[in-house]
Amino acid sequence: MNTQRRVGGAEASPAPSRRRVLGAAIAASSIEWYDFLIYGVAATLVIHSHFFPEVSSTAGVLAAFATFAVGFAGRPIGAALFGHIGDRLGRKPALLTAMFLMATCSTLIGLLPTYATIGVAAPIILVILRIAQGMAVGGHWGGATLLAVEYAPPERRAFYGALPQLGLPTGMITGTLLFLLLEEILTPGQLSLWGWRIPFLLSVVMFPVAYFVHRFIEDTPRFRQVGALLVAQVGVGAMFGPAQTMLAQMFPPEVRYSGASLGYQIANILGGGLAPLIMTALLAATGTTLAVSGYVAAACVLALIPLSLATIVRTRRRSSRQDDHAAVIENAR
Rank of each mutant, 00 (worst) to 15 (best):
residue 121 A to P: 15
residue 209 V to D: 05
residue 20 R to W: 02
residue 170 T to K: 00
residue 47 I to A: 06
residue 234 V to W: 14
residue 2 N to R: 12
residue 214 H to A: 15
residue 96 L to E: 11
residue 145 T to A: 07
residue 109 I to R: 14
residue 26 I to S: 03
residue 39 Y to F: 08
residue 273 G to W: 00
residue 75 R to I: 01
residue 227 G to E: 14
residue 66 A to K: 11
residue 158 A to S: 14
residue 285 A to D: 08
residue 105 C to P: 13
residue 125 I to Q: 08
residue 281 A to V: 03
residue 280 T to L: 02
residue 211 Y to P: 07
residue 172 M to N: 11
residue 198 I to C: 03
residue 73 A to E: 03
residue 137 V to H: 03
residue 66 A to Y: 05
residue 316 R to G: 08
residue 252 P to V: 07
residue 46 V to L: 03
residue 222 R to Y: 01
residue 87 D to G: 13
residue 213 V to S: 12
residue 151 Y to I: 05
residue 131 I to Y: 04
residue 268 N to T: 13
residue 49 S to Q: 08
residue 297 A to K: 06
residue 197 R to T: 12
residue 136 A to K: 08
residue 8 G to V: 03
residue 286 T to L: 04
residue 232 A to W: 09
residue 202 L to E: 14
residue 104 T to N: 08
residue 298 A to V: 04
residue 258 S to T: 14
residue 237 G to F: 10
residue 12 A to Q: 05
residue 23 G to Y: 04
residue 26 I to C: 05
residue 99 M to Q: 14
residue 130 R to V: 01
residue 132 A to Y: 04
residue 5 R to F: 00
residue 242 P to Y: 11
residue 202 L to R: 14
residue 85 I to A: 00
residue 103 A to M: 05
residue 183 E to F: 01
residue 172 M to K: 11
residue 276 P to L: 12
residue 169 P to L: 10
residue 241 G to D: 11
residue 183 E to D: 11
residue 26 I to G: 04
residue 22 L to K: 07
residue 243 A to M: 13
residue 274 L to N: 08
residue 159 F to R: 11
residue 62 L to H: 04
residue 93 P to S: 01
residue 86 G to S: 11
residue 287 G to R: 02
residue 303 A to D: 03
residue 317 R to N: 08
residue 217 I to S: 10
residue 307 L to D: 03
residue 6 R to W: 00
residue 153 P to T: 06
residue 206 M to T: 07
residue 244 Q to V: 06
residue 207 F to P: 05
residue 256 R to D: 10
residue 301 V to K: 04
residue 290 L to W: 00
residue 148 A to C: 09
residue 179 F to S: 09
residue 226 V to Y: 15
residue 182 L to V: 06
residue 31 I to C: 11
residue 214 H to E: 15
residue 243 A to W: 05
residue 184 E to I: 10
residue 183 E to V: 06
residue 187 T to A: 08
residue 314 R to E: 09
residue 148 A to S: 14
residue 322 Q to S: 14
residue 61 V to H: 14
residue 161 G to D: 05
residue 283 L to V: 03
residue 165 Q to S: 12
residue 320 S to Y: 01
residue 13 S to R: 06
residue 222 R to Q: 15
residue 293 S to N: 11
residue 78 G to I: 01
residue 28 A to T: 10
residue 82 F to Q: 11
residue 54 E to N: 10
residue 61 V to Y: 12
residue 40 G to K: 02
residue 17 S to V: 08
residue 263 G to W: 00
residue 41 V to P: 08
residue 27 A to H: 05
residue 301 V to N: 10
residue 11 E to I: 14
residue 206 M to R: 06
residue 78 G to A: 01
residue 64 A to H: 01
residue 254 E to T: 11
residue 161 G to M: 02
residue 41 V to H: 03
residue 321 R to W: 04
residue 19 R to I: 07
residue 56 S to Q: 06
residue 273 G to T: 02
residue 252 P to L: 09
residue 80 A to W: 03
residue 261 S to G: 13
residue 137 V to F: 02
residue 148 A to H: 05
